[in-house]
Amino acid sequence: MKTMETVIEVKNLTKKYGDFVAVDHINFTINKGEVFSLLGPNGAGKTTTIGMLSTVKKPTEGDAFILGHSIVKQKYQVRKLIGVSPQDLTADDELTGYENVLIMAKLFGYRGKEAEDRSKWALEFMDLWDSAFKKVREYSGGMRRRLEVAMSIVHNPAVVFLDEPTVGLDVQSRRHIWELIRDLKKNGTTVLLTTHYMEEAEELSDRVAIIDHGKIIAMGTPDELKAKIKGDRIYVTLKGQDHMDEIIRKINDILPNSTNKVDGQILIKTESSSEFLPQLIKILSDYEVIELKVVKPNLEEVFLELTGKGLREDEGGFDRFKYMRITRGARR
């Protein structure tokens, strides 16, 4: 294997707001050409991490290096190397998509024809050239997200940060953005992605770091992470809770330590669901079952296994203004 060039190196990066620790001594490295995801629920510290890596938030402790440049001591050099697509929709909706991208090209030092060529390239790359000269307020939610990415890749950065690039989008627009992120990777761009959608992390990433309460609790390729939960999960939902303990006892007699109660459901962990299902059905035939669900290993289950809660829980306070900002135009 050829030696890989490290693009990002994060060392004990920490951010505290008073007593609250938003990011807690995280460490990871990202190699050139990799798509690396931070997967975790809202409020886990993903956006704060991006904020620090993009030099707008000052770490309380620790440091990170982008191609060897410190995000604390060499902010200016770092800013030239990164492209950030924030969670907010930041493009000016009174200007055209092209004007928005061109402003970014010029802020990164391109002039005249070169700035125009770069802008055209970025818009074409993100499938937006057809609408480049329309006012952004006429864009759909998916187009606005793509424009945000176009604005952050126009200067051909060494690494692109994508903070929740598909939040609030329909399935079709989401898949479109996923395709474009894969193209970015083919193009040799290093990508740091944050998401709370496990499908997104699983689809796109070479490696995933699962983050919760500011700490990285697991890291590896999607397959490595899925290997942490051996076998399948079976969820059983009963009508009423009366016989739950009885059923759990019966199953544990056959498969020791396999079964417990999670959120009012019975959760059975088994090496192979196909082998165990006939036995399970025999047990359950005496009871009223509403739902029986077999889940193959996925990152959502890994998160559940590690934290005891689902990715979508823990949504935290609802900031109406922030919601509007994220979904501006996304409902059309």
Binding site: S54, T55, V56, Y76, R79, K80, I82, V84, P86, D88, T90, M104, L107, F108, G109, M151
Partner: peptide
Amino acid sequence: NRLLMTPT
């Protein structure tokens, strides 16, 4: 915030 992430 986006402006602050550029070398401007």
